[in-house]
């Protein structure tokens, strides 16, 4: 066992990990943050996507021992400070981009990273960008709409600020 320290959603945290402890296990079992989910064991479903140092990664395919000192953002860190839904989360509710909610945290985290890199993606780019996330409920139709809606809101806010 080794002690791993990192910043999760802006807070300094530390916990115990074995060599084989995955980031998702550390989040769920050590830090008791269960918003990040595990839906497969072949690194394909993306229910576990979080951000590490500003990039989306699959937390089920990342050893926590490699992340001592890293900055991690999870779904629990995506709401506004006052507890209201963040822009992408709100877009998911507005566009009915979720049903059972299980894949949703990973979808939100992937889209957040996508829009950081490409603020105004086309529908094809959104669909391509969701290649590492499986949803069994929505047929992706409203997830795509949520991404488009969030992109419009974020770029509108950016323009307003400029």
């Amino acid at each position: 066992m080794a002690t791993i320290s990192m910043t999760v959603n802006g807070k300094q945290v530390s916990g115990e990990a074995q060599g084989n402890t995955l980031l998702v296990e550390f989040l769920r079992e050590e830090l008791k943050m269960t918003g990040t989910h595990v839906g497969c064991d072949t690194s394909q479903c993306g229910a576990c996507v979080v951000h590490v140092n500003g990039e989306s990664v699959k937390s089920c395919t990342t050893f926590v021992s490699a992340l001592d000192g890293a900055e991690v953002t999870t779904i629990e860190g995506m709401a506004n400070d006052d507890g209201t839904l963040g822009v992408i989360q709100q877009a998911f509710q507005d566009e009915h981009g979720l049903q059972c909610g299980f894949c949703t945290p990973g979808m939100v985290m992937t889209i957040a990273d996508m829009l950081n890199n490409n603020p105004q993606p086309t529908e094809a780019e959104i669909r391509e960008g969701l290649k590492g996330n499986i949803c069994r409920c929505t047929g992706y139709h409203n997830i795509v709409k949520a991404a488009q809606s969030a992109a419009a809101t974020l770029s509108g806010a950016k323009q307003a600020a400029e």
């Binding site: 690194s43 993306g46 996507v49 990039e55 989306s56 990664v57 699959k58 395919t61 990342t62 992937t110 990273d113 996508m114 960008g129 290649k131 590492g132 996330n133």
Partner: peptide, 9 residues
């Protein structure tokens, strides 16, 4: 290759 997350790692 793969998906954005795979490409990031």
């Amino acid at each position: 290759i793969g998906d954005p997350q795979v490409r990031n790692r």
